[in-house]
Design a protein around this nucleic acid. Structure first.
Length: 267
DNA sequence: TCAGTATGGGTAG
DNA sequence: TACCCCTACTGAT
């Protein structure tokens, strides 16, 4: 589930598990054999996440840069890790844990300047920048006329939002996905930013995307809400809006599907 | 066993 | 805009 909350959670988990230790690294699949060999046995200094990008500092100007893409996964095992599957691009391990990376879009070693180049192309990250990031976000919207639904997926405008969060956040803010970014009012831009910060923090904490309020689906805890009750609009075309009962609609925006409520999202 | 799908993004035209 | 890559899972055949 690689939106920003997943990436930040991985950075924290892998810092907890591996930082300060010499880490074994190998590539069962073989496609990252030389890169893995270059960090095998090195001490992991720290990890960092920015948007959907993950960085592992192995010292000596060696940074592992990972982007999961659409289908990448990083599975972490604290005790008795199984053998990695043959498709595992990179395996990391110490005496007590292992992490197996499959299907990433990016898995490479970079230098500090190369990492900075990646970071320089990213907009503010709700999980890194918190409420401070709203000024940059607001300015980024003002400069663009593309639909706000496309803008939220543009990592240069805001880093870490994916297709689930963009639909859910626009619903929570009552904003029509087709409105031009530079026509979004300052109040709405601030509301969008605040909603992204709160929702991504919640997603990072519980490890999944749950935007509905428990009271709306009769659940006591947000983490125990069944999958079909976790979201307001994403993949709910044809179903009634949880707020007004109108039929949720789907259309293509920026080459990807977006779902919205035609009654609740009118600004 | 195969086709379809997925929370992403780069490149060619 | 179309197409491509990466992997795992689901449902149809």
């Amino acid at each position: 589930m690689p939106e920003g909350h997943t990436i930040h959670r991985l950075a924290e988990r892998h810092r907890d598990v591996f930082a300060g230790d010499a880490v074994r690294a190998w590539s069962p699949q073989g496609r990252f054999a030389s890169g893995a060999a270059a960090i095998d046995g090195a001490v992991l200094v720290d990890t960092a996440a920015h948007g959907k990008h993950l960085f592992y500092d192995f010292g000596g100007d060696r940074f592992l840069h990972v982007h999961l893409g659409l289908i990448g996964t990083f599975r972490t095992f604290r005790h008795d890790p199984p053998e990695p599957t043959p498709t595992t691009r990179l395996a990391l391990g110490n005496d007590s844990a292992a992490a197996y990376l499959t299907g990433p879009m990016t898995c490479r070693l970079v230098t500090h300047p190369e990492a900075d180049e990646v970071l320089g192309g990213l907009g503010p990250d709700p999980l890194r920048d918190g409420m401070r990031g709203r000024v940059a976000f607001r300015a980024n919207l003002r400069r663009r006329s593309l639909p706000i639904g496309s803008a939220l997926l543009d990592q240069r405008i805001v880093a870490g939002i994916g297709n689930v969060y963009r639909a859910e956040i626009l619903f929570l803010c009552g904003i029509d996905p087709r409105v031009p970014a530079n026509a979004v009012t300052q109040d709405d831009a601030d509301r969008l930013w605040e909603t992204m910060v709160l929702q991504l923090r919640h997603g990072r904490r519980i490890g999944r995307i749950v935007t509905v309020e428990p009271a709306e689906v009769g659940a006591r805890y947000r983490t125990t809400i069944p999958p079909e009750d976790r979201l307001y609009v994403y993949h709910r075309d044809g179903l009634p809006c949880r707020h007004c009962g109108a039929e949720i609609r789907r259309f293509d925006l920026g080459g990807r599907s977006i779902w919205f409520c035609p009654v609740e999202q009118v600004r």
